Amino acid sequence: MDWSGRVALVTGAGSGIGRATAEGFAQVGARVAVVDRDEDAGRATLEAIGAAGGEAIYIAADVADEQSVAAAVAETVRRFGRLDAAHNNAGISPDTGTTVDCTRVLWDQIFAVNVTGVWLCMKYEIEAMRASGGGAIVNTGSVSSLRAAPQLPAYVASKHALIGLTKVTALEYAAENIRVNIVCPGVIETPMLMKKAAEGFFSVDDYVQSSVPMARAGQPEEIASAVIWACSDSASYLTGATLSVDGGMVIA
């Protein structure tokens, strides 16, 4: 792939899947807007891209805040002149307990980031892509977009909602050369996953052996590859699709 002259924006780019995607876009020649509310993490990604010879900018933004999202997209266009691809990856998964135990505060917080945040990003990304003649968006769902997981009612509901949001947006803008897809990772070795494991939420090894047919956890770069492909010209007829990158979890 040659992304020379093209521009990609990645949210939640400070670590895990977002960082791998931001670095992957830079490796194929894109100029990258590294968007994360954690400045230290975002700048670490920025430095890694620069050290590898790529071109990027860091933008601090909270995807749950509309003004922040609008400013991040506007700054990307101001600095790079256009927007061709976006990976809306920022998301949270705090422990909530059962449906009864989940508090309204946690429910609203999870939906504000995982659903409203993605909607806000697409709202402003699409406007920028229209000015560039089109583009491609990939939202980050989860294996929990396609199956249930106990003790995670708000997270599962939010990730299910993203499939519907992705499909309707893909339908609305297909004729304007804007493609919208969703990638659904399975068990991926990210800081978020390892933090949950360290807190005793579950054993990664046990979960992998019992739930993943390929019998291993995935790497962030494996999700990044799928995202970059889905945004590329090689996937020019792909829109409204749900890409399960999960080692076979949803077919088990």
Results as ranks from 00 to 15, higher is better:
Pro150Ala: 11
Ala174Ser: 04
Met194Tyr: 14
Ala154Leu: 12
Ala112Asn: 14
Ala44Gln: 11
Asn89His: 06
His87Gly: 06
Ala64Leu: 10
Ala20Ile: 03
Ser158Pro: 03
Lys159Gly: 06
Val180Lys: 10
Gln209Trp: 06
Ala128Phe: 14
Ala74Lys: 13
Ala70Leu: 12
Glu39Asn: 05
Ser232Ile: 11
Leu120Cys: 12
Thr76Arg: 12
Pro220Arg: 02
Gly141Phe: 05
Ile92Asp: 05
Thr76Ala: 14
Cys231Asp: 10
Phe111Asp: 03
Ala22Asn: 10
Arg104Gly: 08
Met129Thr: 15
Ala70His: 07
Gly12Phe: 08
Gln109Cys: 01
Asp40Tyr: 02
Phe201Cys: 08
Glu75Asn: 07
His160Phe: 14
Leu46His: 03
Asp84Arg: 02
Ala44His: 10
Ala72Glu: 04
Val69Leu: 01
Gly53Glu: 14
Asn177Lys: 13
Ala136His: 01
Ala22Thr: 12
Leu46Thr: 15
His160Lys: 04
Pro153Trp: 11
Arg37Asn: 15
Ile188Asp: 00
Ser232Leu: 13
Gln219Phe: 01
Leu83Val: 03
Ala86Val: 10
Ala85Cys: 02
Ala90Lys: 02
Met192Arg: 15
Tyr155Gln: 02
Thr45Pro: 00
Thr103Arg: 12
Ala198Tyr: 00
Ala197Ser: 14
Gln67Lys: 13
Glu176His: 13
Ala56Gln: 09
Ala157Thr: 00
Ser93Arg: 09
Phe111Ile: 13
Arg179Gln: 09
Val10Gly: 01
Ala60Ile: 00
Asp40Ala: 12
Ile163Gln: 07
Ile110Lys: 10
Tyr237Lys: 12
Pro213Ile: 15
Thr11Trp: 12
Glu172Lys: 07
Met122Gly: 01
Ala20Val: 03
Thr103Val: 13
Glu221Thr: 11
Gly50Lys: 10
Lys167Phe: 04
Leu193Ser: 04
Asn181Asp: 12
Ile223Leu: 05
Phe202Arg: 01
Leu9His: 12
Ala131Val: 09
Ile163Ala: 03
